[in-house]
Amino acid sequence: MSQKPIVLHTAPHVKKPQDVPMIMRNVVYALLPIVAFAVYQFGISVLLLTIVVVLSCLGTERFFNWMSDKPSSLNDWSSTITGLLLALTLPPGFPLWMGAVAAFAGVAIAKVVFGGIGYNVFNPALAGRAFVQAAFPVAITTWTPAFFSGRFTEFVPSTLTSPLMMPPETAEWVKQVAVDGFSGATPLGMMKFQSISTPTADLLLGTVAGSAGETSALLILLCGAYLIARKMMNWQIPAWIFVGVIITSGVLYLINPDKYADPMFMLFSGGLMLGAMFMASDMVGSPLTPKGVMIYGLLIGFLTVLIRQFGSLSEGIMYAILLGNAMTPLIDTWTQPRLFGAQPKKGKSA
């Protein structure tokens, strides 16, 4: 029996190649169940919207590749993820042409002009959403009911609006299809403007109105857990965001429970779960050090609650994450670990 020679290597010992396209592919796998549930919940409108948004993201990226004489960068999957995430944050009946605008704006403004993947300061999906939030404030706050009966055979009337045109009023159509008095408000909207809370079970299972992919907090948690288990996502980021949300909303709730929502509601409503799991944890836009991640997560959680409770919008996670992205370079500078053996600067301990 021949003995295998013992090979000695110096560190690092790479066991498995983990490159960008592979991580990105796994993020796509993790997002697919959420997309599937969104389609099951809201029907073919969401399916078509997702396809249009993803194709627009890819098209935009390819277009700028061509403009700057670079080889295609589509095979790193990052634009696919941007497209999927963006589609999940849009209202189910969002006009397709506006979805394409959001995709173009997100990829062009937030990603390409900064130099492509790895250089983007802001999460492209959120930047795209912020653009259409500012451009089409009415369409992006028009919600349609979940689980309406004809959802696999008919489109929401606003979906097929012709380009550049205003989407038709959906109020009449909603009255026809809605099972029980659907008010056109999301749980956060109801909380903010009518002080009506929604049962946590509904928020977990996703039987509420909202953006296409934000409604089932439980499913998003499971899909995020898959990425964490495969060590492809920093679990500390969502964890610190949750802590930030719980602390901030907890303090407010203790001050005045009639006026402010309870932490459980804050945690499971709106786009917080999707944003914390899949957008704030974007590797490019988030800090590197554990301490930096803590500051980043707490800041996003704090800002989200602040905007939700005191801002004029009912949802705050989008701007909170974008602000967190903007703070990241600064946080990284603050929290650089000291080199081993280096002297602390001017008598200050790090």
Partner: peptide
């Protein structure tokens, strides 16, 4: 240019 059903892009008349 586009008739009365045109959807204005609000962001374009804002400073951004």
């Amino acid at each position: 240019l586009f008739g009365e059903h045109f959807q204005p892009w609000v962001i374009m008349v804002l400073p951004a």
